[in-house]
């Protein structure tokens, strides 16, 4: 189910609705950043390529931000507490600085609910350039950080409805 969710999310980012937010163009799997393994790293820019006229329009009116979406799944044998999540977010912030990425989405996906302490931590996470979401793939529940980028995730990182 987690693999299906990640595949669905990858499709949404590269060719689906998320293209309204950024032009995500490249997806890497099982990428190690610092000491953290991410199941997926998708990179892109906010300025789309497009054809002649849309390219001119984008050049004048769209900021050229480098963006990324990092996805990490949490399986049964893995524990994720507040400290570990804070460590993951610090790793992401360093990765952004090193690669001059302007904003990022960080999605933590799990089959099952997240503890309240973790949800509270995410809701109170204050970094404006990083949007964080905890996604319960089985129920479709999502908790996001309160920044604008975080709130955007509610629309684009939803788990698909079970058939």
């Amino acid at each position: 189910m987690l693999d299906e969710y990640i595949l669905h999310l990858e499709k949404e980012l590269l060719t689906g609705k998320a293209r309204w937010v950024a032009d995500f163009t490249e997806s890497f799997r099982n990428r190690q950043i610092g000491d953290t393994f991410f199941d997926m790293l998708v990179t892109g820019k906010t300025r789309p390529k497009g054809l002649f006229l849309s390219r001119i329009f984008a050049f004048f009116f769209t900021p050229n931000y480098k963006v990324a979406c990092l996805v990490r799944s949490v399986t049964d044998g893995m524990s994720l507490d507040r400290l570990r999540l804070a460590g993951i977010l610090r790793t992401v912030e360093k990765f952004m600085k090193r690669n001059e990425i302007d904003w990022s989405w960080v999605i933590i996906a799990k089959e099952g609910g997240f503890p309240e302490t973790l949800k509270n931590f995410v809701q109170t996470y204050r970094v404006r350039e990083v949007g964080v979401a905890l996604v319960d793939v089985s129920s479709g529940d999502m908790t996001t950080s309160s920044s604008f980028i975080g709130k955007n995730l509610e629309r684009y990182a939803k788990a698909p409805k079970a058939k």
Partner: peptide, 16 residues
Amino acid sequence: DEVSLVHLGRGRMGVR
């Protein structure tokens, strides 16, 4: 050593 999935534009997908 590294493989990625890329969107080549116009809905075309490729492997890099």
